[in-house]
Design a protein around this nucleic acid. Structure first.
Length: 554
RNA sequence: GCGGGUAUAGCUUAGUGGUAAAGCUCCAGCCUUCCAAGCUGGCUAUGAGGGUUCGAUUCCCUCUACCCGCUCCA
């Protein structure tokens, strides 16, 4: 792999994506739109292949998962139940001094962990300030640690203000605020955890896209473009259950668009405002039910999760099983385990409803970033919808003879991130030496044949020989029924090979004079099969082409 | 949202207050018996909008997009 600076590598990848028609900027002729990207002809094929492989592995190759395709706009109460209306509108503040952006609701939590803030708190227990201590600190340590804190910038003035406003200093936090405020009167400010500077008033950051249902477009008609596809699965849980003859444990999966007004769309398509998700909600029995049935749940130390699913698996084993399944799937489309990282969220990072979350990350040129999260969510979501809708989400388990709200394991992947990872992983600038000893760069996308946008390039060796062209066209028409092929007769054969290298086409077939029997009947109806990665060629019979190619792409 | 940078053809880059240059790519043709060959011809650009000026791609302002930080977790 390349050793060039990562920025350059990413820029080259972006450039290639445009040049070969993988990814374009949305609305480009109008100047583009921040956070939106389009897929060109090659990108559309690539993305389609990836989604179909996921869908096939989830639904068709399994007995225990069914599919769903829900609408993007749903009843707005869904997002109240899911918590998105609250959690997706974080108030944010900017520090006037260091310009950093912080979540207003997390400032005091952050200040709990900062040493300089700890010092201040210890100097004003219950709000009663140790004036001498503060003065000394402000003129020594404070000067080094937080030069932008009001107390540090003007110790005497701020302490005088504190004395004047002592009636307000009723708690550690209130005193802290007074010590962070430069003005002698007026509203108190909150200190920036990074530098002690003043933070701006909290500004609401609304991450959900709003729209109106109905032409009247009044406040009562507000709805949201879904910020994730998962909620639709929970909302349709009962319908699927009653129509699909499924039994817990089982899953419902969905692929679809989701929308988030990201604060900072960045890193090419990595964080987009319109993006696509592939999500599975896999419903399992609560551990208590397993214990009642089997005495205890299987534990990870028994080697569970590496076998096929067993009836005594509790949530921990199911969670691990899905982590492993997802790694296996990534491997099957060309993302080796060694290219990925696994990150177990620490207890304090977990969402309040999550019991465990594992992130699968890819080492992008711009940093190691998340592709998929696999969360054990308990029964939070179904319970929320039960509460908000007033409809029962309970499942009657005939085996255990009990009713319960199932728990869930949620593998949730970003399609567009995965596409970008596949491109980054596949990209290589290879130095090759030609016949004359000249060194040149060959740009190749080493896509796995399963995801490659074009599976095979088909060329007549020369375009001015009708027999060659005719044979090549016949092969094209034979293969195109089964896969995406690309026919090309222009320019020199080497140029055509290199073009396909850049498009990531794993195989090329060339019809030459042997193919039409000019050099003896034993070579008639054979062609050259050229392999992208090794650039080697072999002679194969036309009749063997289709079975060979299918074995590579299925 | 804040701060810093960038914007010239499909791509990579020149350049100037007065006609915008090149390489690669692409298209057409000739030639060509397996790895970006050669020859001929062709298409295509100053991100958008204002201003200063006789005249702006160049100077000034605004906007937009992209890149880098703050933030983020599909």
């Amino acid at each position: 792999m390349s050793t060039q600076p990562s920025v350059t590598r990413m820029e080259k990848i972006v450039s290639l994506c445009k040049r070969r028609g993988l990814i374009f900027q949305s609305s480009e002729i109008y100047g583009g739109l921040n956070g939106f990207w389009d897929y060109g002809p090659l990108g559309a094929e690539l993305k389609r292949n990836v989604k179909e492989l996921w869908w096939k592995s989830m639904t068709r190759l399994r007995e225990d998962i069914v599919g769903l395709e829900a609408t993007i706009i749903m009843h707005p109460d869904i997002w109240k139940a899911s918590g998105h209306v609250d959690t997706f509108s974080d108030p944010m503040s900017t520090c006037r001094a260091c310009k950093k952006l912080v979540r207003s609701d997390q400032v005091w939590d952050m200040l709990e962990t900062v040493p300089w803030a700890e010092t201040i708190r210890s100097l004003c227990p219950e709000g009663k300030a140790d004036v001498d201590g503060l003065l000394k600190w402000a003129k020594n340590k404070g000067l080094r640690l937080v030069p932008d804190l009001a107390l540090v910038k003007d110790p005497e003035g701020v302490l005088a203000t504190l004395a004047k406003r002592s009636s307000e200093a009723t708690s550690v936090q209130a005193t802290f605020e007074i010590l962070s405020t430069a003005a002698a009167e007026g509203p108190l400010s909150t200190p920036c955890p990074h530098c002690g500077g003043e933070l701006t008033e909290p500004r609401p950051f609304n991450l959900m896209f709003k729209t109106y249902v109905g032409p009247a477009a009044t406040e009562d008609d507000i709805a949201y473009l879904r910020p994730e596809t998962a909620q639709a699965i929970f909302v349709q849980f009962k319908n699927v259950l009653e129509t699909s003859r499924v039994k817990v444990p089982f899953g419902i999966c969905q692929i679809g668009k989701a929308f988030r007004n990201e604060v900072t769309p960045r890193n090419f398509t990595f964080r987009s405002r319109e993006f696509e998700q592939m999500e599975l909600e896999f419903f399992i029995k609560p551990d208590e039910v397993i214990e009642a049935q089997h005495g205890k749940t299987a534990s990870l130390s028994d080697g569970a999760a590496s076998t096929d699913p067993q009836p005594n698996w509790g949530w921990e084993v199911w969670h691990m099983y899905w982590v492993e399944e997802r790694f296996r799937w990534y491997d099957s489309i060309g993302l080796k385990r060694s290219s990925l990282e696994e990150y177990w969220q620490k207890p304090d990072e977990l969402a309040h409803y999550a019991r465990a979350t594992v992130d699968i990350l890819y080492k992008f040129p711009f940093g190691t970033q998340e592709l998929e999260g696999i969360a054990a969510r308990g029964n939070f979501d179904l319970s929320q919808h039960q509460k908000f809708s007033g409809k029962s989400m309970e499942y009657f388990d005939q085996e255990a003879n009990v009713k319960y709200v199932p728990h869930v394991i949620e593998p949730s992947a970003g399609v567009d991130r995965l596409i970008l990872a596949l491109i980054c992983e596949a990209y290589e600038e290879e130095e090759v030496t030609d016949d004359k000893g000249q060194k040149e760069v060959r740009t190749v996308l080493h896509f796995h044949p399963r995801v490659a946008p074009i599976k095979v390039g088909i060329f007549p060796l020369l375009k001015n020989r009708p027999e060659l062209v005719q044979k090549a066209v016949e092969i094209r028409d034979l293969l195109r029924q089964h896969m995406n092929v690309f026919y090309d007769e222009t320019g020199a054969i080497g140029r055509r090979y290199r073009r396909q290298d850049e498009a990531g086409t794993p195989f090329c077939v060339t019809v030459d004079f042997d193919s039409i029997g000019e050099n003896g009947p034993e070579l008639q109806d054979t062609v050259t099969l050229r392999h992208r990665d090794s650039m080697t060629q072999e002679r194969v019979r036309i009749a063997d082409l289709l079975p060979f190619l299918q074995s590579q792409i299925l």
